[in-house]
């Protein structure tokens, strides 16, 4: 029996802690508990109100058993149509703008000044919630789908350009170098060395963004930026839960359809 073994026998074994320094560990644990407790205590729950509201909640849930598509069909149709239109237009425009920005935001392609500018655009687009952008745009442009369209295009840039830029930065260097070594020009290099590597991902991300844009377009109407959200808001304020249920079902089914479609398209590309 070795000396090292003898020293260990009879010793209790404990799993090494994730954070080795005990002071830090306890500070973190106690700090988190204190924060959660404080955060929870700041939330007042009015049980009387919930008890009264529960009946309404039940009405809402049961409305899904009997959704009303017909009585507000004109409004629903117009809203959905507008949402779809906004989704398509903004996704196309968003992608078109994202591609050059993504190229500019990839450190292995772009020079530093271009890189910084493009990254700044992405950061601003990601930091601002769609709803907030829509509020500002409605204030500037007035009510209507144009504000929603610009909002979604802008949001698409932050999403798509960031992920695409990361993909370009992670691409295989050797393939791109092989093209460069043939004496290709910059545009040829992008076309033959970079584009084939990132194309499947670009298409996958675009489909995913189409899906997100549709979901977002459903709420922009709440602040007057067009789409089904306006209809939804009206239905909520009139407590017409059966119409609400109909609208939500349409949204859910559309999202499911889009996901299914994007699954097929992604499978075919790869």
């Amino acid at each position: 029996m070795s000396v090292a073994l003898e020293a260990k026998l009879g010793q209790a074994w404990k799993k090494p802690h994730f954070i080795k320094n005990p002071a830090w560990r306890w500070a973190l644990i106690l700090g988190s508990i204190a924060y959660f407790a404080a955060a929870w205590s700041g939330i007042d729950i009015n049980f009387g109100r919930i008890a009264r509201g529960w009946e309404r909640g039940w009405q809402f849930i049961s409305a899904f058993g009997d959704p009303d598509f017909t009585s507000r069909w004109d409004d629903i149709y117009k809203g959905i149509y507008e949402s779809v239109v906004m989704t398509i237009a903004s996704t196309v425009v968003g992608i078109a703008i994202s591609i050059p920005i993504a190229l500019g935001a990839a450190r292995n392609i772009a020079p530093l000044p271009v890189y910084l500018v493009c990254r700044a655009v992405i950061a601003v687009s990601r930091a601002l919630n769609e709803i907030i952008v829509a509020i500002i745009l409605v204030a500037i442009l007035g009510f209507g789908p144009l504000a929603g369209f610009i909002t979604l295009s802008f949001a698409t840039i932050g999403f798509l350009a960031k992920l695409l830029a990361e993909d370009i930065e992670n691409m295989s260097k050797s393939q791109a170098e092989a093209i460069k070594s043939t004496g290709a020009s910059w545009t040829q290099w992008i076309n033959f060395g970079v584009q084939p590597q990132v194309m499947p991902r670009l298409i996958g991300l675009s489909m995913y963004r189409l899906d997100i844009n549709f979901r977002e377009s459903a709420v922009l109407g709440l602040v007057g930026a067009g789409g089904i959200g306006g209809t939804l808001n009206t239905a909520f304020s009139r407590y017409e839960f059966d119409t609400v249920a109909a609208i939500l079902l349409i949204i859910i089914v559309t999202v499911m359809f889009l996901e299914y479609l994007s699954g097929i398209i992604r499978a075919r590309i790869q």
């Binding site: 509201g53 939804l232 939500l248 859910i252």
Partner: peptide, 23 residues
């Protein structure tokens, strides 16, 4: 799919009418 498809703002709209406005 049903919780994911519906934006949190819509959920909030609904919940405000059920549990009342507030955090």
């Amino acid at each position: 799919v049903s919780t994911r498809s519906v934006n949190s703002l819509i959920w909030a709209l609904l919940l405000v009418s059920i549990v009342g406005p507030g955090v």
